[in-house]
Design a protein around this nucleic acid. Structure first.
Lengths: 189, 189
DNA sequence: TGAAAGCGTTGTCATAAGACCATTTTTCTT
DNA sequence: AAGAAAAATGGTCTTATGACAACGCTTTCA
């Protein structure tokens, strides 16, 4: 149950067993179906998740009523409706399971208590933020200039699992195009 | 010289004067002209910057040879070619001064030594990463779905200084459009 | 098990934005 | 201060992609 989380932490920092226990003890298991909502617009996101199995998706509804996907996280990653979680303010994002998922949940309070008391945990959180930022930048670079077909090739190369596991609609909203355009581009390959 | 940096730190964390001195003592002043290169593609970015005055811009050259701007930072912000700086790998980004700037520089080595020895400094760095990530996400949400005219309105609302201080070409590359398109959109307003 | 809802595909049509270019304006360099 | 280089503007033409709609397939859930 906690193996994957323990590995996640041990791979990223030197943490002794006592601290490791202390950290994992605050995570509770949670199973979700497909498309279950973990945080919706207007709610403050009070939880952080570790994904044992499955996929979480974070998205917004833009002013035309279309979904725009901000982030996907797969197994062995941590995830939340980050902006809301960090700022402790009502979320603009939805956070949903894109697949049936096995998660571990930790509450905001416990999370920040751990951050303050266990330096190794802060370090891991910091590293998560670094990579989340780097990933976002990569997407900005890749998607701002590129044409549709190149964005599609980009995901095929960098995040191929999304194309096999996630609905086209959700992937299209991640690539900044409509599902009909994505469908036509796939036919072109 | 160090006032602004001290305020930056004090606004973000409770830090005592000794630690504050320790931190600022590693920053050295640096003046740049407009368009001076602080890091170029292929180099490992060995420095982190605090901006007393001016503006830094981070960008890449995409495979069509066009610039794509990833990030602008103005006065009283910290900045680097972050991906390279964090991963300690050759940069794909350029980091340049978009205006004549007054900077404070700290070396990578000093920076990470401070991170490890002064918890308040780690905390501030962590906060910087959080906001950098949130900002990137905001841009992804705003720019993926929007039409050009709405992106322009978005910058006018959220980062108006860019439009008055920075070259149209650089702003266009931040908005994911050509300079001629931006010029035509400005005329429409 | 059957009806309903949602998703993916594909067609037509409209349009926003890119490519390319010429001209003017600004900035840089000596 | 003058000439050169770069940036900004705005024109025309082309094209990628969105909007909308029809259809079949799959999933869901009563």
């Amino acid at each position: 149950m906690y193996n994957q989380l323990e590995n996640y932490l041990k791979e990223r920092t030197d943490i002794n067993d006592t601290s490791l226990q202390e950290v994992t003890s605050h995570f509770k298991p949670l199973k979700t179906k497909r498309n279950e909502v973990l945080c919706r617009t207007g709610q403050v996101c009070k939880n952080f998740y570790f994904i044992n199995e499955g996929c979480l998706r974070m998205y917004e509804i833009d002013n035309k009523g279309n979904e725009v996907t901000g982030y996907f996280a797969l197994e062995d990653q941590i995830m939340s409706a980050i902006t809301s979680f960090v700022l402790n303010k009502p979320s603009r994002d939805f956070l949903v399971s894109a697949e049936p998922s096995n998660l571990l949940v930790i509450s905001r309070d416990s999370f920040f208590k751990l951050i303050d008391t266990i330096p190794e945990f802060r370090y891991v959180y910091n590293q998560f933020m670094e990579f989340a930022f780097i990933h976002s930048q990569m997407r900005i670079y890749s998607f701002l200039g590129m044409e549709g077909i190149d964005k599609l090739r980009w995901v095929m190369e960098h995040e191929p699992k999304l194309l096999t596991r996630i609905s086209s609609k959700a992937v299209a909203s991640y690539l900044g195009m409509t599902n009909s355009t994505l469908s036509k581009l796939r036919a072109q390959l």
